[in-house]
Design a protein around this nucleic acid. Structure first.
Length: 918
RNA sequence: GUCGGGGUGGCGAAAUGGUAUACGCGCAAGCUUGAGGGGCUUGUGGUCGCAAGACUGUGGAGGUUCAAGUCCUCUCCCCGACACCA
């Protein structure tokens, strides 16, 4: 009698045994890596441990990652598969505010829940390496890194606009601002306020962040999003003299080829030149636009607004006067904040010209014979005046004197050269990427390890003044720490031995009235000694954003070995950092990084930036953190909406596990759809996976009650087991050959699918094998009446012969390829049914030797490309076209369609036979 | 608007240019009566037909090829990201 499948009973047991046996701990990495093994660093984006516990979406991501990790582990790689907690940041703080607790107290509780859930799912993490970003032992290093970046000149402090809610009197994070520009809590309009902020010079790395994308094995879409975010544009700054003034307006354009078509200039309301205009209309317009939020401007979208300044600029090319306008459609933050209007070939310029009745001149015509020229005034404001030709990035120049007849790309180059020769313009590269505001006026983050000393600031300032009399401080990208200090007089980083700068445990930590950090009202925190003069000084009270901890956590997993290397020093210093990297056994960088696409830009960009900076500091010897990236698709609720408490449609993994077991949940989530695809939960489909798991279980239970009938088929020799014996057909006469061939194919399929992240088809192929295995048993038992199968299955004596269809050795191989997906059940069978001493998860992945030996193949036969019949062909015969043709022509179905001598016969060996008849 | 990803049964989905719909769900019939989302067997794209079988079929229209879901051209629709970036 089969033992019933009761996963709840044995899953708990294996969690404990795996922990005890340290099955998934890699131990000191340096030792293992030096053993000449290939390494695989397999990482899932670590979670923010919320109070809600693990989501089935987490389960999907972590299971996929776990399958990959287990696969490489069984394939002999040295696998690093860690887990930790990203616990700083706004969500945690908000949750704590709501619960009226300190996040410091809540985080450990949440982590405990997450960890318990992860263990119940059987993820093969090396828990020896676990840490949370909120642990001072971790963030002392985050702070240390901040200091290194500061010292290399990557961090500076300046006034920058932050989101501020006047009603709540507090600074806000981007995430708290809704799309319509209101505060998510009170619904009030958000203002921008200038407050001093720490800013990261990420723009210095823009080019490298862009070009290094080349070598990454990432989803195309993510690469494209990063490229767009960096937004490199090559163009030219053209200087226009203002008539009757000494002033010059510089416009950035990527399309100087159209410059003969320029009819106006527009500057942003924030442009420098605006301040010099004394004109009531201008003043009014600028005030109006300032009072409207960026969102409002966008919402009013279609209609262009603007005001004429009364000034004209001169187009150097033809001496034409260009009226200078002010409009909020020109962004002060991009390019030079001034645009030359070419309404014939830019949609926005066109709309503007239409609105204010400005001339439209066409200077590019399409290649498709569209040669209409706009000359007549009446035509000018017709839609047709806007020529798509140049927007489509191809066309030929007209009305442009020496450019006439040239292709636009040739013309662009030529006129750029011309502008530069004449000294009217200069080629420039601009980026969409901005420097990264790194300050948060919030409690729940890493304190920024900087101190401000007023006394030193005064001294420094006077010193700079005297210095400046002699030599000017050059501002370039290679500032020394002294030069930097001169730019930020009075600011000092904490000495290394003062790290960690701990976040104080306090009762009240809610945002303050002034928009300053809550830490600023804690005197014990603020007041300190100046690291330089020893006098009174004040600490920086801003904290780091939640990105800080996740920027380098993957490095920490590899380098930090806590109990493993007892003498490992962990006090932040360059020496200790380098020592820890050396001891990390070349596990870095990350080989497989799996997670949601929502981090396409920010987290992935910031991490890449830090790694490059660390490379420049010679603290790392690689330039990219994540070599391979794969996205997991979201799981929606059964009703196709997002899972949410308020909808009441949340599936809790704990409930699923207690009902179906962790293996069934894992199999289902891997089988439900391709890994990267969004999918709705379906409990019905989960049952199908449960059924599969159960059927596998039942089949193997029959082995448990029968001692291996034949010693030679029992335990494979230990040697072979160690090195993974190749599967062979025909060793065992009793076996079903066709079934063994199917097993070979299944092993091949799963082996090639897992590294391609094709978990769904892996499982499908194993299901196919199971179907075949069962039907083979049915066949062998000569069951005529299918209804009796269940009766017979309960009879041990009858079952004995059924087992003969697959040898113990082969039955174990199937178990092995299933093991990454269903770790609990396979382990239970591996040890209890087959009596193995060591975990199946440390066993060696089965291999398939040589070609698959298939005696017969089924060959489709077509007539005129239409399938008419299939014929069985001996594999040995496969290259003999003549005999195969003959065989095909024996078929009645084929004969029927061949009424005359075939004109042509196409034969692709083993694939297809196609007769072409008239 | 720009970029990216997609359109295949009732549903989730498979298919190095070579038997379209594997695998799973659902459904139907039969069996098993331990029928409170239990098990087993068989069937299941559409149309016509008692059947054998025939025709048709991967959003649409063309094309390349002995052969197209797959390659090329055009087009329609859906999803995601960015968006007045000059």
């Amino acid at each position: 009698m089969s033992d019933r499948y009761q996963p709840q009973e044995f899953e708990k047991k294996w969690i404990q045994i795996w922990d005890k046996e340290k099955v998934y701990s890699m131990g000191p990495a340096s030792a293992k890596a030096s053993a000449g093994k290939e390494k695989s660093y397999v990482l899932a984006m670590f979670p923010y441990p919320s109070g809600a516990g693990l989501h089935v979406g987490h389960v999907r991501n972590y299971t996929g990652t776990d399958v990959v990790a287990r696969y490489f582990r069984m394939n002999g790689h040295s696998v690093l598969h860690p887990m930790g907690w990203d616990a700083f940041g706004l969500p945690a703080e908000n949750a704590a505010v709501k619960a009226k607790k300190n996040p410091m107290d809540m985080v450990p509780e949440h982590i405990a829940t997450f960890k318990k859930q992860m263990k119940s799912l059987g993820f093969s993490y090396d828990w020896d390496r676990e840490f949370t970003t909120t642990d001072p032992n971790y963030y002392k290093w985050t702070q240390w890194l901040f200091i290194q970046f500061y010292k290399m000149g990557l961090l500076y402090k300046k006034n920058a606009p932050i989101n501020y809610c006047p009603k709540c009197k507090t600074g806000l994070a981007e995430e708290e601002v809704l799309v319509d520009g209101t505060h998510e809590r009170c619904g009030n309009k958000i203002e921008k306020r200038d407050l001093p902020q720490w800013v990261f010079k990420i723009t210095k790395y823009a080019d490298r962040l862009l070009s290094d994308l080349e070598g990454l094995d990432w989803p195309k879409g993510i690469l494209e999003m990063q490229r767009n975010w960096i937004g490199k544009k090559e163009g030219i700054n053209i200087n226009y003299k203002i008539k009757g003034s000494d002033e010059v307006i510089t416009c950035f354009t990527t399309r100087p080829d159209t410059n003969f078509g320029a009819t106006f200039i527009v500057i942003a309301p924030e442009h420098e030149f605006v301040k010099k205009i004394k004109n009531e209309d201008v003043k009014k317009y600028v005030e109006e636009t300032a009072s409207r939020s960026e969102q409002e401007r966008l919402n009013e979208n279609k209609k262009k607004t603007g005001v004429f300044t009364g000034f004209y600029a001169v187009n150097n090319l033809n001496g034409k006067l260009l009226p200078i306008w002010i409009s909020d459609f020109v962004l002060s933050g991009f390019g030079t904040g001034a645009v030359v209007g070419v309404p014939g070939h830019d949609l926005r310029d066109f709309e503007f010209a239409k609105e204010f009745k400005i001339d439209i001149i066409r200077v590019v015509v399409g290649k498709d014979g569209d040669r209409s020229e706009i000359t007549k005034r009446e035509q000018v404001y017709e839609e047709s005046a806007f020529a798509k030709a140049s927007a489509d990035k191809e066309g030929t120049m007209i009305n442009s004197e020496f450019l006439d007849g040239l292709d636009i790309h040739v013309a662009t180059k030529k006129i750029m050269d011309y502008f530069e020769e004449k000294g009217w313009g200069k080629r420039v590269t601009t980026y969409h990427l901005r420097d990264w505001i790194f300050s948060r006026q919030r409690y729940w983050g890493e304190p920024i390890p900087m101190v401000y000393c007023e006394t030193c600031a005064k001294n420094q300032k006077s010193k700079i003044k005297s210095q400046n009399l002699n030599s000017k401080v050059k501002s370039n990208n290679n500032e020394t720490i002294e030069q930097l200090n001169n730019q930020m007089p009075g600011w000092f980083s904490l000495p290394e031995d003062q790290l960690p700068l701990k976040l104080p445990y306090v009762k009240s930590y809610e945002p303050t009235e002034t928009g300053e950090s809550p830490l600023s009202v804690i005197p014990e925190f603020v007041n300190t000694k100046c690291p330089k003069c020893g006098g009174k000084a004040k600490r920086e009270t801003d904290t780091m954003p939640n990105w800080a901890g996740s920027c380098w956590y993957f490095i920490r997993f590899a380098q930090y070995q806590r109990s493993k290397i007892k003498d490992q020093k962990d006090e932040p210093s360059t020496e200790n950092w380098k020592m820890q990297i050396e001891n990390s056994g070349n596990l870095l960088p990350v080989d497989w990084y799996l997670g949601g696409a929502e981090h396409a830009v920010l987290h992935l960009l910031y991490s890449r930036f830090w790694v490059k900076a660390l490379y420049d500091l010679k603290l790392l010897d690689f330039k990219e953190p994540f070599l391979r990236l794969r996205n997991q698709g979201m799981i929606l609720a059964e009703d196709h909406r997002k899972m949410s408490k308020s909808f009441g449609n949340v599936i809790n993994p704990d409930d699923v596990i207690s009902e179906f077991g962790a293996d069934a949940l894992r199999i289902y989530e891997m089988f439900m759809a391709p890994f990267n695809q969004e999918i709705s939960w379906a409990t019905k489909s989960l049952q199908g996976s449960y059924r599969f798991v159960k059927r596998v279980w039942d089949l193997y239970q029959n082995y448990s009650v029968i001692p291996a009938p034949d010693q030679s088929r029992g335990q494979a020799p230990a040697e072979i087991q160690k090195h993974g014996s190749p599967i062979k057909v025909g060793d065992d006469k009793a076996e079903d050959k066709q079934l063994v061939i199917k097993l070979q194919k299944t092993i091949q399929k799963v082996t090639s699918d897992i590294p391609e992240v094709k978990f769904n088809t892996s499982i499908a192929s194993m299901m196919e094998f199971l179907n075949k295995w069962e039907s083979s048993i049915n066949q062998k038992s000569n069951i005529k009446d299918q209804n009796d199968i269940s009766k017979i299955k309960n009879n041990n004596e009858t079952m004995k012969q059924f087992n003969n269809v697959l040898s113990v050795e082969h039955a174990k191989m199937f178990l092995q390829i299933l093991a990454p997906f269903a770790p609990f059940m396979t382990e239970e069978i591996w040890r209890n049914v087959f009596g193995e001493k060591e975990s199946i998860h440390l066993s060696v992945w089965p291999t398939v030797s040589g070609e698959i030996i298939e005696e017969e193949i089924i060959l489709p036969v077509q007539i005129n490309g239409k399938l008419r019949d299939t014929i069985k062909v001996q594999r040995s015969n496969i290259k003999d076209q003549k005999s195969i043709e003959k065989l095909a022509l024996n078929s009645e179905k084929v004969k029927k369609y061949i009424t005359s001598e075939p004109i042509k016969i196409i034969y692709v060996p083993g694939k297809i036979l196609n007769f072409i008849v008239r």
